[in-house]
Design a protein around this nucleic acid. Sequence first.
DNA 1: CGAGTGCGTCCAATTTTCGGACTAATGAGG
DNA 2: CCTCATTAGTCCGAAAATTGGACGCACTCG
Lengths: 148, 148
Amino acid sequence: MAVAADPRACSVARTLDIVGEKWALLAVREVFLGNRRFDEMTRRIGAPRDTLAARLRSLVSAGILERRQYCDHPARYEYRLTQAGLELYPVILTLMRWGDKYLASDDGPPMVLEHSCGHRLLAAVVCEACGKPADAGTARPVTPAARP
Amino acid sequence: MAVAADPRACSVARTLDIVGEKWALLAVREVFLGNRRFDEMTRRIGAPRDTLAARLRSLVSAGILERRQYCDHPARYEYRLTQAGLELYPVILTLMRWGDKYLASDDGPPMVLEHSCGHRLLAAVVCEACGKPADAGTARPVTPAARP
DNA sequence: CGAGTGCGTCCAATTTTCGGACTAATGAGG
DNA sequence: CCTCATTAGTCCGAAAATTGGACGCACTCG
């Protein structure tokens, strides 16, 4: 039998290497909320400027944000979401939903996604076939069969 | 006008205070995969034993995991998901899906969720009313109206 | 007895984070 | 002209967290 699998190489771990840190995801949240500028972000997030600057650099180099000049003379930059960044929405939404449910939320969701039909959008776990939302009860984790 | 809102109090930030760190979420992933024991976790996750021990303690005190004795004499403990922990599944799933899509995944998803009907479960953004999955195009972020 | 398993703790060295001060370029107000 | 405010960072020293490896203890198995 093979030796015990060393650190699992998995998509969750790889993703967390990039965004698995408080400030990173909060920076992405801020951009979603429309605050694309460094100063505003530090204020709304509460992160040390130093740390946020480092985080933004790594998010840019990971292709999640794009640093774009919006003013010439006192060259100023802002951050925008790339396609990859936009698709982090479900991650942020699921985190928010969990927090809304389990952590006293005296202020409610900081943001709401609206469907074209005008209703709220939620991040849910749904069945590929039925399309129906699944409760924890109806779900069953399946570990990929061990290779022979 | 009020002074610029200090660090936003939001569910995303509160949630990340607890699980917003690589090892924490990876520990939860391992328990989902059925590895409830300390030693096995350190091996599969690749975290320093010290750090993992600290993370497990904080996950327990946050009510996400439960530390339970499974052997008397050489008192041994294992970790199990509470209800709150179980409901982190969507978070892990969305992270996994993002990683599958954007980070070269030479090994595929490390786990699959199965619906009671036998099909795969996916994390999707769906409309609260229609229940239909929404593409990025049909979604529009709405910032809560600024209070007067 | 000696080795192995399981769940941690302890430690010293390194790395990160923190928060406040500081810079540089520009515009606004008096 | 002089000063203050804005914006996007950088620099710094102190404090905290992380790391990896060694160690401890309570067993069991052969």
